[in-house]
């Protein structure tokens, strides 16, 4: 040890080892990233003239947003109440319907075909953005809160049932075996071995979903599916920016309350 130290002079330069050891790979990655940036920026059809106008426009818009106009509060309250009601109802229906679907999607307690069908349903409904679901439902049941409700129900069911399925798959199978060993039927296994392990997380997920539904209920209206979003998008079309600002502030407040409530309840559940 001391021999090598005296033989070679102590180095005076040091560079930290890179995350990617081979320099060729490192530079290649940088080149790819740069090439992607150039390509994607070039591919976007941006009307630069229009974008350049954007900054004065933004200033103008902000100027018109203040002071926020709460004078049409009746319209505002009606929209917000509708959004919140859609969120409440959809969360409840979702949490009920998610239980059977979640059970079916748990690979360790269900036969393979049932599992596959349930998983496919969940993946399908999870992939599409709420607004896509909303517009499809608008086409099916017409404009109004029913389409929004159905959208939120589908989104809630897929989210909650996925969580249930994952919880069941990760639970302690020893407890299931122990209850099964007493000669219990499937329903009894469900109540005695599975439900106690999964219930607390399930309730937490439902509350979280209520919070998420409140957030989503404010946008489904943009495609005509009810709630405050309908009013909001109308104000943008009419350049009623002071009323837009009032709605946006209300939404921020609403989401803040929803999140606070959700955190509070989940804290209590723990």
């Amino acid at each position: 040890m001391t021999d090598t130290a005296t033989a070679t002079p102590t180095p005076t330069r040091w560079k930290p080892p890179s995350m990617i050891e081979r320099p060729a790979v490192r530079y290649a990655l940088w080149a790819v990233a740069a090439a992607y940036l150039v390509w994607s920026m070039g591919a976007l059809e941006v009307d630069w003239g229009r974008v350049a106008q954007g900054f004065p426009r933004a200033g103008n818009m902000v100027a018109r947003m203040f002071p926020p106009d709460f004078s049409r509060w009746d319209l505002l309250v009606r929209g917000v109440v509708e959004s919140v009601e859609m969120a409440f109802a959809a969360s409840f229906i979702g949490m009920v319907l998610a239980v059977p679907l979640g059970l079916c999607a748990a690979g360790n307690i269900m036969p393979r075909p049932v599992y596959l069908v349930a998983r496919t349903l969940i993946v399908l409904s999870r992939t599409f953005h709420e607004v896509i679901l909303a517009i499809l439902f608008v086409k099916i049941v017409g404009f109004g809160p029913l389409a929004g409700l159905l959208t939120l129900v589908v989104a809630s069911v897929s989210f909650i049932s996925k969580m249930i399925a994952e919880d069941i798959e990760n639970m302690n199978m020893g407890q299931v075996e122990a209850v099964r060993a007493t000669g219990a039927s499937f329903a009894k296994v469900l109540v005695y071995a599975i439900q106690p392990q999964v219930l607390p997380r399930y309730l937490g997920v439902c509350i979280y979903r209520l919070d998420a539904n409140i957030r989503h209920s404010t946008v489904v209206g943009i495609v005509g599916a009810g709630g405050i979003g309908m009013t909001l998008s109308a104000t943008f079309k009419r350049y009623d920016y002071d009323f837009s600002m009032a709605i946006l502030l209300t939404i921020i407040g609403l989401v803040f309350i929803g999140e606070f409530f959700s955190n509070w309840v989940r804290g209590k559940l723990r």
Binding site: T10, T12, W14
Partner: peptide, 14 residues
């Protein structure tokens, strides 16, 4: 940049 003066680097190695 982790570009410390040479004297510091030498002192660190020592």
């Amino acid at each position: 940049r982790r570009a410390y003066p040479p004297d510091d680097v030498r002192a660190a190695f020592e």
